[in-house]
Design a protein around this nucleic acid. Structure first.
Lengths: 335, 335
DNA sequence: TTGTACGCGTTATCAT
DNA sequence: ATGATAACGCGTACAA
């Protein structure tokens, strides 16, 4: 068996003082003699005392615990966000629950419920698949939350949002491709219900309008945010519109799939087809040809989201924030 | 403010029964009338009751919480392990704390201490950088633990281990390269204190001995487990021993660095230099040339480690396990 | 400066 | 089948 816990009561006995004095010593609160504090801390040390966060949380209603909910840590996009978020949480003495939702809204609800039972102090929720209504229900219950890549009419002051401006990012891709003389620019718009997918689509449409170009539905293709998804979508696209000379992919993974589809169908990149990804995951620099992409500092997203969350928790008066991050077109070989 | 919690006391009042009856109903324990249970559960539902895992854990000394400690989730190797581990934890109704140690042993100790305070039920510890002594101290305190890629004289029955057989894996690389006629096979051995690095080295040495080949210290190079680390190490190697015609890299990331170093120094792959990686991260299939590597099912490592941990927790009588996973040489273009 | 008594939400023990 | 009461470990009024 694991050893039995030493409690403040044990320390109190050993030191010949009351529980209260021990508590004050440990929590560094004043109203206690400096020498007795030192003596008590020494005894605590000797006894290998560790405060029970369970007991502590039960009375303070703070668990020093946060949640990070995302579709899939194995996706490099989210892996780097997780990295950044955990880093900041660690710096602020929080522990972080990691939850993969697998893009499944039932699982996401399960996750949020379990976090609620754990009485976490706050959540960073990435790319939520919850309906607006479900979302609000949970936000009502959560002490604090930061939504990443998800819009919402903020129901209260305990919720902030952080979004990548996919719309303007997509527009800048379009600008670039048009300047380079591309005539038939297609879009792999991502999963049907993806918020950032919808924003990409919006940017694509407004960009085309800006250049007085027609919006051709056949040039828009739904795809999974994976290599395979991009691959399949590109093949469908090439079959339907063989003349396409540029593709803006939902993300870098999909873009890699596009690369493969091009090679497979004998298209040269970028001569025959220009390809632009998004997010600038490490892989983007390593493909051949290397990927032109919308660079986003993924670690910074995680860090910023976590800092925003902690700000929300520490200073409840602080107003809610709507943070927007601008991606930057990073030119490599594929476009 | 977040809404106030509804407690079993609230339910008891509403139902006109005692706390105990509510508790029995909620925990599905017997000694309670079927109808009253249903009635109570309905009321609990209406009141939006969520059991406090803090309070529950305080008395049961079980938190339904596990820890996952690893160097870096952003490293695809660990990202996939995290994915697999979280999947299984979810299936068994556990939440998972994610902790990045950044290869820093102080941080690892911090992590373990914080988990201890949270009274987690168990830990999966990946590639620990702790000294044998420190390790044992913590294992003594933890209710259960699974060590991934770390050997240890098991101090008690609450610890299992899961190791990839890097040694025999490296030997099979060597066998293959020698059969293919490679004469000067170098090893990028990974970080100095890495356990799997030491095993790679052992396999490299025993493999050479087996073939009656000399062990040449100059052919062994320390490296960080990153693209950059592999790149730099390969350049050092080429400078010292330009004649090297094969490199076994510590992992796939380092192997990608080697690829780059070869291109940079005008070496053709695999004609001039054969390159073999390890782990088969998704990137390995996407480089050009694609990477020949030691395939390991990374998700399965995470899943198996987590299943082993939960087994340890659920059935304390169960004996400790020492699980070994055999990597398989997967031939692609680089060797 | 130090201590007493109670509450946090839940489960466990022992009655009834 | 149900309930009263005592833990679990700690923080916090309030008192001394």
């Amino acid at each position: 068996m694991a050893q039995k816990r030493t409690t403040i009561s044990d320390i109190a006995h050993a030191a010949g003082v009351s529980l209260m004095t021990v508590s004050r010593a440990i929590n560094n609160r004043d109203g206690i003699n400096k020498e007795t504090r030192i003596r008590i801390l020494k005894i605590a040390e000797q006894l290998g005392y560790r405060p029970s966060q369970l007991a502590r949380g039960l009375v303070t209603h703070k668990s020093a615990t946060l949640g990070l909910v995302m579709p899939d840590v194995a996706n490099p996009f989210f892996a780097h966000i997780a990295r950044g978020a955990e880093e900041i949480a660690y710096q602020h003495n929080y522990n972080l629950f990691l939850i993969n939702t697998n893009e499944d809204s039932k699982r996401e609800k399960d996750a949020l419920n379990s976090l609620l039972e754990k009485e976490i102090d706050g959540v960073v929720l990435c790319s939520s698949r919850l309906s607006q209504e479900e979302m609000i229900t949970f936000l009502e219950l959560l002490p604090a939350a930061v939504l990443v890549n998800r819009e919402i009419k903020l129901p209260n002051s305990r919720v902030s949002t952080l979004n990548v401006d996919d719309s303007s990012g997509t527009e800048s891709c379009l600008d670039y491709l048009i300047i380079k003389g591309r005539k038939n620019i297609a879009l792999l718009a991502g999963p049907r219900f993806s918020v950032s997918g919808q924003r990409r689509l919006a940017g694509y449409q407004s960009g085309l309008r800006k250049h007085n170009l027609p919006i051709i539905p056949d040039h828009i293709e739904i795809c999974s945010p994976t290599i395979q998804g991009g691959h399949e979508a590109a093949l469908r696209l090439f079959q339907r519109c063989p003349y396409v000379d540029a593709i803006i992919a939902f993300n870098d993974l999909a873009a890699v799939g596009v690369l493969r589809a091009c090679q497979q169908t004998g298209r040269r990149i970028p001569e025959d087809v220009a390809v632009i990804g998004s997010d600038d995951i490490p892989l983007a620099a390593l493909t051949s040809p290397s990927l032109t992409t919308l660079h986003v500092d993924l670690n910074a997203i995680g860090e910023t989201a976590m800092r925003t969350l902690i700000r929300l928790i520490d200073s409840p008066e602080e107003k809610t924030e709507k943070i927007v991050i601008q991606p930057q077109l990073l030119l490599r070989q594929s476009a």
